[in-house]
Amino acid sequence: MELLIDGIKKAFDMILSGDREVFAITWLTLKVCLISILISTLIGLPLGILLGLTRFKGRRILLLFINIGMGLPPVVAGLWITMLLWRSGPLGDLTLLYSPTAIVMAQILVSLPIVTSLTCTAFQQISEKMLLQIKALGATRMQTLIILIKQLKIAILAAIMAGFGRVIAEVGAAMMVGGNILGDTRILTTTIVMEVSKGNFDIALALSFILLSVALLITAALTFLQQRKRIS
């Protein structure tokens, strides 16, 4: 209990004293997580809609891989990205390993299947009759899509929140591809692991509260968007 109180006190100290290192780490965490989830949404939403609304050859296989991807262990994702970005790897010339970009890539790999699969599930539940009714109202394809996205706003935002939950909590892949370099690739989760290994439990706890606050703020904003203007 004492440790918990110390952790909370330490967290307040760090924030109120304007600890530049903590701010830099928190800012980088926020930046890589938001960029990752934005890219995952930009790819996963159209892909999920395509998989949910259309039928084509190979769709089930693709869906199977995406669903398997939802359970992809972050260390495996990290290993793949490392091999891809390694000096002798296919993208080695880009020298992206141990950079925030590498962390973003690993986080996309773990969150994209979640956003895609949950979006697909939501769109798959749209009945043929509903699609027929929207078409009969005189909607173009684009208008149909807009209506469906508005109708499925709750499910789509839930998919984005689930994806965000995965990236904000991610540590294994970020450690592997980012290297936890101070001032460059150190994010909150990797710092917590490092502080625990050093025995600095109060700092680790303080950072965990900051991480939780960040996650809470983003999730609260998404929840607000999801739940607003529901008329009874």
Binding site: S127, K129, M130, L132, Q133, K135, A136, L137, G138, A139, T140, Q143, I147, K150, Q151, I231
Partner: peptide
């Protein structure tokens, strides 16, 4: 296609106000 309209057995209304639902065909036009 927009010269015709259809009402099915299930009302298949959208999540929104009654006003919004009735207006949808005109909004799309």
């Amino acid at each position: 296609r927009r010269k015709f309209s259809i009402a099915l057995q299930q009302s298949l209304l959208l999540d929104g106000t009654v006003f919004h639902n009735i207006a949808i065909g005109l909004t799309l036009r």
